[in-house]
Simulated assay, not measured.
Amino acid sequence: MTLSIETPALLFSATSLILLAYTNRFLTIAQIIRSLKKNYQEDHNKSILLEIKNLNKRLTLIRFMQLMGVLCLFLSVFAMLLLFIDMQSIAIYLFGLSMLCLLISLGISFWEISISVNALRVHLSDLEEFSKKD
């Protein structure tokens, strides 16, 4: 089995875009947490505290998503270096490992999105009850 130097390079654009999306998620959630913390300090509403806890869990997942994405990119570059110096067999394994890191990152992303969707459903559930009363 052979691997050309262009194959690991294919992950560059995809991984870069994924990391950008993860960073945007992180920044958005961080901004929401700051806002909710300010609201909690004024109201001491327990539901706000639960939302912050949920968002904190999502931040942790995003951190692991980013870690796996960066590791994917790092291993791809390292595989390219090994291909450049003609160490084909090790490069193949490193590239496989980089794809595994990308899969893990995407799996964690799915998990984080599921948490987000469930939180939004809970948040909107009172509106559903309100609309049933009409």
Rank of each mutant, 00 (worst) to 15 (best):
60 T>I: 12
60 T>P: 01
61 L>V: 02
62 I>V: 10
62 I>N: 02
64 F>A: 08
64 F>H: 08
65 M>K: 04
65 M>S: 07
67 L>D: 00
68 M>W: 01
68 M>G: 00
69 G>R: 01
69 G>C: 06
69 G>S: 04
71 L>E: 08
73 L>A: 09
74 F>W: 04
74 F>V: 11
75 L>S: 05
76 S>M: 05
76 S>G: 14
78 F>C: 03
80 M>P: 05
81 L>W: 09
82 L>T: 04
83 L>Y: 07
84 F>E: 05
85 I>E: 13
85 I>G: 05
85 I>P: 06
85 I>T: 14
87 M>A: 11
88 Q>W: 11
88 Q>M: 11
91 A>Y: 09
92 I>A: 13
93 Y>K: 15
93 Y>T: 14
93 Y>R: 14
94 L>M: 13
94 L>Y: 12
94 L>N: 09
94 L>W: 11
95 F>P: 02
96 G>N: 15
97 L>F: 15
98 S>Q: 06
99 M>Y: 13
99 M>N: 12
100 L>V: 15
100 L>Y: 05
101 C>D: 02
101 C>G: 08
102 L>E: 01
102 L>I: 08
103 L>R: 05
104 I>M: 10
104 I>N: 01
104 I>E: 01
107 G>A: 09
107 G>R: 01
109 S>Q: 09
109 S>N: 11
110 F>D: 00
113 I>A: 13
113 I>R: 10
113 I>K: 11
113 I>W: 09
